[in-house]
């Protein structure tokens, strides 16, 4: 109990905010590493996922690759990459990209696959081009699941970005590794709490976003379906 109080006091101490090893700088590093990794992973996984979802081919390969990649231990990957390209931020970013790809890929193609094929067929039969089908039908209808994939990738990366500090990549993990080396458990715990708080903040933002991107017509359908049940279930759904 005391340890937690100490850790919170450590976090609240203004002296720990400034300077190159302060919470401010480390937080920005942590966010930067995470965002860069996620953007790169998204640039690879989302178009690939759309292609798989739209054409319905390559799914088996994607599942295989995702499964294989998921089995890679991130710390091991960081160590190997660190040995070959040196310490710093590049090795962890590559490892986090690898970490984020499976969830994003799954979210992207699951979002497309979940769309009733008859809707896509109907869009095509009134004369939409393939690009228009992707942009006006599959993307808006698949967005909630895609955001779900980005959400779990973000959570994984923010939690795992702690490991960047293992090879001098910075981030909130610095407090944990520094605390570990100096037997400063207060600082270790403070670092962990900061990472957890950051993850929770993103989780909250994403769950709000995920609800927001459900197209109005789809939400309207869900609501009428729920209401036709009991008034209670409608209240719970809100």
């Amino acid at each position: 109990m005391n340890l937690i109080v100490d850790a919170i006091a450590w976090i609240l101490d203004p002296a720990h905010y400034g300077g190159p090893n302060g919470i401010g700088v480390r937080l920005i590093e942590h966010l930067w590493i995470s965002v860069v990794s996620l953007v790169i992973a998204g640039a690879i996984a989302i178009p690939a996922g759309f292609l798989i979802g739209h054409t319905g081919t390559g799914r088996a390969a994607a599942v295989l690759v995702s499964g294989g990649v998921r089995a890679l231990p991130t710390l091991g990957l960081i160590s190997i990459l660190g040995l070959s390209i040196g310490i710093g931020v590049q090795a962890p970013i590559i490892a986090f990209v690898v970490l984020a790809i499976p969830s994003m890929l799954a979210g992207a193609y699951a979002g497309f696959e979940a769309i009733d094929r008859r809707i896509v067929d109907s869009a095509r039969s009134v004369g939409m081009t393939e690009w228009q089908i992707v942009g006006r039908v599959e993307l808006p209808l698949g967005l909630p699941l895609l955001i779900g994939g980005i959400r779990s990738a973000t959570l994984q990366v923010i939690a795992t970005a702690t490991l960047a500090a293992y090879i001098s990549g910075g981030g909130l993990g610095s407090f944990i590794f520094l605390g570990l080396r100096t037997n400063d458990y207060t600082q270790m715990l403070a670092g962990s709490i900061l990472v957890i708080a950051l993850a929770i903040a993103f989780e909250g933002a994403f769950s709000a976003l995920q609800r927001l991107v459900v197209p109005a017509g789809v939400r309207a359908g869900q609501r009428t379906k729920v209401r036709s049940g009991s008034p209670r279930s409608a209240a719970e759904a809100e």
Partner: peptide, 30 residues
């Protein structure tokens, strides 16, 4: 094919309406 489909009306059994378009947006699609 795309141009051909745009000048032929198509009505299907399950209406085939786009769920995220309003009635008026659906009608005005083509």
């Amino acid at each position: 094919p795309v141009a051909l489909r745009r000048r032929i009306g198509y009505v299907m059994q399950n209406s085939g309406l786009l769920p995220h378009f309003t009635v008026i947006e659906n009608v005005a699609t083509v």
